[in-house]
C-alpha cells in the first residue's frame, strides 16, 4: 500500500517537474492562434468583417471576441478552417452575402475622369493606388486586393471593380460536367465567320 502511494507520488512529481520545465523551455511568444488564423485569411484587408483589416480580425478571433463567419471574401472554406483552428462551431455565412461571393475583381480608375483628390489613396489598405494631389491616380493591378474600399469614396465615381480579363494565358479548362457529350447537331455555330458573329 505504502509503496504504491510512494511510487505514484514520485511519478506525479517527476511528470509535474517535466511539464513545468517544458512550459518554460518551449514557451511560445505571441499568440500563435492569431498568427495561424491570419495565415488563412485572404488578406484582402477589405474590412467587411467590421474590423480594420485581416490581422485585427484574426486577433479578435483568437481572443474569442468575433464570430467565425465574418470573412466574406474567404467564403465558406475560410470559415470552416477558422472554425477548425479556434475550435468554435462552424456558422453559415450571411446568406445574402454568400450568394454574392464572386471571383476576385480589381479596381480600375478611369484616368480621364479622375480629378486627383487622393481620397482613394488614403482609403487603400495596401497602398496599391499611386498618384498625388491634382494628378490622376492609377491602381497597381498586381497589388490590388479587390477590397472595394476605394470605390465609395471617389467623388467623381471614376473607380470601377472589374473582373480580370480572360486571355489565352489565363484561360482555364472547365471542370468536366456529368452531362453527356454534345451531339453533332449542337455545334451549328462552328461554321459562322467572325463577321457574322459580330
Amino acid at each position: 500500500m505504502l509503496t504504491a502511494i510512494v511510487i505514484f507520488v514520485g511519478l506525479a512529481l517527476v511528470f509535474g517537474l517535466l511539464l513545468g520545465y517544458a512550459a518554460v523551455r518551449f514557451k511560445v511568444e505571441g499568440n500563435p492562434m492569431a498568427e495561424q488564423i491570419d495565415k488563412i485569411l485572404p488578406q484582402t484587408q477589405c474590412g467587411q468583417c467590421n474590423y480594420p483589416g485581416c490581422k485585427p480580425y484574426a486577433e479578435a478571433l483568437a481572443k474569442g471576441e468575433a464570430d467565425v463567419n465574418l470573412c466574406i471574401p474567404g467564403g465558406n472554406e475560410v470559415m470552416l478552417s477558422i472554425a477548425e483552428i479556434t475550435g468554435l462551431e462552424p456558422k453559415a455565412l450571411d446568406e445574402s452575402v454568400a450568394a454574392e461571393h464572386t471571383p476576385k475583381e480589381t479596381a480600375f480608375i478611369d484616368e480621364d475622369v479622375c480629378i486627383g483628390c487622393v481620397l482613394c489613396i488614403k482609403a487603400c489598405p495596401v497602398d496599391a493606388i499611386i498618384g498625388a494631389t491634382k494628378l490622376m491616380h492609377t491602381v497597381i493591378q498586381s497589388e490590388c486586393t479587390g477590397c472595394d474600399k476605394c470605390a465609395p469614396v471617389c467623388p467623381v465615381d471614376c473607380i470601377e471593380m472589374r473582373a480580370p480579363e480572360t486571355t489565352l494565358e489565363t484561360w482555364q479548362w472547365p471542370e468536366p460536367t456529368s452531362e453527356p457529350k454534345p451531339l453533332a447537331s449542337q455545334y451549328l455555330d462552328v461554321n459562322s465567320t467572325t463577321e457574322q458573329r459580330q
Partner: peptide, 10 residues
C-alpha cells in the same frame, strides 16, 4: 498575392 497584401498592409 495574400502574402504580398499582408506585407503591404502591415
Amino acid at each position: 498575392a495574400a502574402e504580398l497584401a499582408k506585407q503591404r498592409y502591415e
